[in-house]
């Protein structure tokens, strides 16, 4: 397949202008500032002392920070895995539904975006509270004899994150699966493959770009999540996002907060690099003749 080449001269470079100025002044400059600050020292009353040191980065190896970092990665990875396990069959079902039904299903997947994320997270607090909806039902049914403590735990954060990011998994998966020619599935079936092998050898490899995209779209924002762990995790389940907020606003230790932010960005950049390679589309050069 060849992309059509637009006729006429190349678009003028200054079309990039507005976007470049906006991103340059308001994003790149603050980012550089933060990078510089991450090497500064903290003054006695919360100000900054302009001296170069690696102290902030070395501080991150403190068990307390390392634990929050590790916990964040685990929660984000768990969220990604759960979203993948739940999102894949859902996306497959939608991709294989009658074309006029697909739109309805996709709309249903996106309906949560119509409501503010904060409001939706408050709703989860009502459900998970000790005297909340879930415990009331479980007690009435006699499944549990005393209410379970769900809110303000890692489990609650996980539930909230999976809820929040599931659509970000389903949409790229749907796009990838919808493109998988269904006669390929029939061909594999005709060639003695069982349903499981058809999935593993044909559908999954062909949907890989969607899997990688979905995993990134879930993993990266859930790693830096702030609101969900703040509301559903409380003090016991702090994630990196909460730590950064704490350092900047509560502890007034800007240099340390900046160092954590830089580390987080470095980690995400590494993930992106790896995933770009993993999601590389099949090479499709022109046929020889």
């Amino acid at each position: 397949m060849k992309m059509s080449v637009p006729v006429g001269r190349a678009p003028s470079w200054w079309l990039l202008g507005p976007g470049l100025v906006w991103m340059g002044l308001l994003f790149v400059v603050p980012l550089c500032l933060m990078f510089v600050i991450s090497f500064a020292g903290r003054g006695t009353y919360g100000g900054m002392v302009w001296s170069f040191s690696l102290t902030n980065y070395l501080d991150l190896f403190h068990p307390l920070y390392a634990r929050i970092l590790g916990q964040s990665i685990l929660l984000a990875a768990g969220t990604t895995l759960l979203c993948l396990i739940m999102g894949f069959p859902l996306a497959y079902y939608i991709a294989r539904a009658a074309p006029n039904r697909q739109g309805i299903w996709l709309l249903l997947v996106m309906i949560p975006f119509w409501t503010n994320f904060l409001v939706r997270t408050y709703a989860w607090m009502f459900i998970l509270r000790t005297e909340g909806l879930l415990n009331t039902v479980l007690l009435k049914l006699g499944v549990v004899s005393s209410p379970i403590e769900l809110l303000y735990s890692n489990t609650a954060v996980l539930i909230g994150l999976v809820y929040g990011y599931l659509p970000f998994m389903v949409l790229p998966l749907y796009v990838a699966l919808e493109r998988v020619d269904r006669t390929l599935v029939e061909a594999a079936w005709d060639l003695y493959a069982t349903r499981w092998t058809v999935f593993r050898r044909i559908i999954l490899p062909l949907a890989k770009p969607g899997v990688v995209a979905g995993c990134l779209l879930v993993f990266i924002p859930s790693l830096g999540a702030f609101l969900t762990p703040d509301l559903l995790g409380g003090a016991r389940s702090m994630m990196i996002g909460n730590l950064i907020q704490h350092e900047f606003l509560v502890a007034r230790d800007w240099p340390l907060g900046a160092a954590i932010s830089c580390l987080l960005m470095l980690f995400v950049a590494g993930m992106m690099r790896w995933s770009l390679r993993a999601a590389k589309p099949l090479v499709q050069p022109e046929p020889e003749s």
Binding site: A187, A188, W189, L191, A193
Partner: peptide, 28 residues
């Protein structure tokens, strides 16, 4: 279909795009 002694050549060929010629042919 996967237990029938028949094989189908599809109109669109339905070759597996991510597998080489040899891998396609050895699939069955």
């Amino acid at each position: 279909p996967n237990r029938r002694p028949v094989n189908l050549v599809f109109q669109s060929y339905a070759l597996f795009p991510h597998l080489t010629v040899a891998e396609n042919v050895s699939f069955g």
